[in-house]
Amino acid sequence: MITAWQALEKGIVTGCIILAILFVMGMNLIIKAAAEKVEARRRHRSHGDYSSREARSRRSSRCLFRAKRFPSIVNNPIKCLGKWFDANLNDSNNIRRLQGQVKEGLGAIDKIRLPGKFKALLFQYGLLPRLTWPLIFYEVTKTTVKALERTISKFLRRWLAVPPSFTSRRERGGKWSESNAVEAAEIRLSHQDIVGTTCVGRQGLGTSHVLRWGTSDKAGKRKMVQDDIRKMEEEIRKAKVVEMGAQGAWTRWGTTDRRLSWSDIWRMEPCRIQFLLRSVYDLLPSPTNLHRWGLTETPDCPLCNRPGNLAHVLSGCNVVLTRGRYKWRHDKVLKELANILERERIKKRKPATSCTFINFVRGREGGHTSSTVHQGVSLTAHRTGR
């Protein structure tokens, strides 16, 4: 069985690689033959008669295929529809070309004398779109993609001043499978439909909107699967972090979660980002960490001779507290606010205009329409009927 015939008047079949190669080769032959014929006529325009020139032109066009005038695909690969084709008929050379493009692009961005966040911006909007297109065309293995990811992550960490101990990867017994993760998410969502909506705390019926797996459309199911996989990955990461004593201490904090968006990173300086990340994961050079890393002999605070951990350095040293170092920054902010309020207080303003009041009468008594200005209930209260 073959596919049905398709009526094509112009162009080539979209997606057929062989047909695209044949089309390029055919057009190349026609253009080369015409160019050779025109060049032969120009060269022999002033010599001999017309018949000899015509004969020479015909012989040159017949010998065109026997002569070595066309570049071979072995020496000169052909680029068609954004993809390179060579004599190997595989993507090994293209993958090596992609790896070289990644190294050259990152090296060129790294040499620019700009702050790190500008380099990250150049990578996101300049180099990354050029790398995404070859990854769509060529059959790149996961190992190669992970190697490219490690190379890119190395430069981004340096540009954004992220500590080298930070990583987004977690160790597993085997490779992560997308199909298995999607299948497990679908099973969990189907089981959630069977369990139904559960009440949490004092939450009443109908206070929250719950999406059902059975009644959702295709787009809704796709979003539910993505959210469930992201939730499970986050739970696995938190379970791994809880096992760490120092770096996982932030899980026991009673504060709200904070997510750094690209706009937040863009407004912050690299030193502030580095301090924020290191303080959350207890990687600052405190006396305790310096002693743990083998750089000092004692883990005590040099001011009060107590264990100088992160909490002690930031807000727990009594000597620093009595000297006013902790509240110096807050006092500066409050002083600025006080100055602004004082300037607004002493600013001269126009006196407020007097309000117009009316008299209320009983329902059975006759009233008059004239209004008087005196102390009483305001006109606004009369309009509201209160």
Rank of each mutant, 00 (worst) to 15 (best):
L303G: 00
G316Q: 09
D300G: 03
F275Y: 15
H330R: 10
R267I: 02
S263M: 09
P287V: 10
L334F: 07
R272P: 00
T296E: 10
R259T: 13
D331F: 06
M268I: 03
V320K: 08
V280Y: 03
N318W: 06
L276F: 13
R329W: 08
S261A: 01
N289S: 07
G294Q: 06
E269K: 09
R267G: 04
S261D: 07
K327Y: 01
N309H: 10
G316Y: 09
P302W: 09
L295A: 10
P285G: 09
T296R: 14
A311R: 11
T322A: 12
K332L: 11
G324F: 01
H330F: 10
P299C: 09
K335G: 12
S279V: 03
R292I: 04
L303C: 03
G324K: 04
S315Q: 14
L260Q: 04
L334V: 04
V313P: 04
T322Q: 12
N289I: 01
L283I: 01
I265D: 03
H312Q: 04
C317A: 06
D331M: 08
H291G: 00
Q274W: 14
D331C: 06
A311Q: 12
T288V: 14
G294C: 13
L260E: 05
K335N: 00
R267L: 03
T298L: 11
R323E: 14
L314V: 15
V333D: 07
V280T: 12
P285Q: 05
L283P: 01
R278G: 03
P270R: 01
E269P: 04
W262V: 07
P285K: 04
H312T: 06
P302I: 04
S315E: 14
K335D: 02
R278V: 00
L277C: 04
V280F: 10
S279Q: 05
E297L: 12
L276P: 02
H330V: 09
S315A: 15
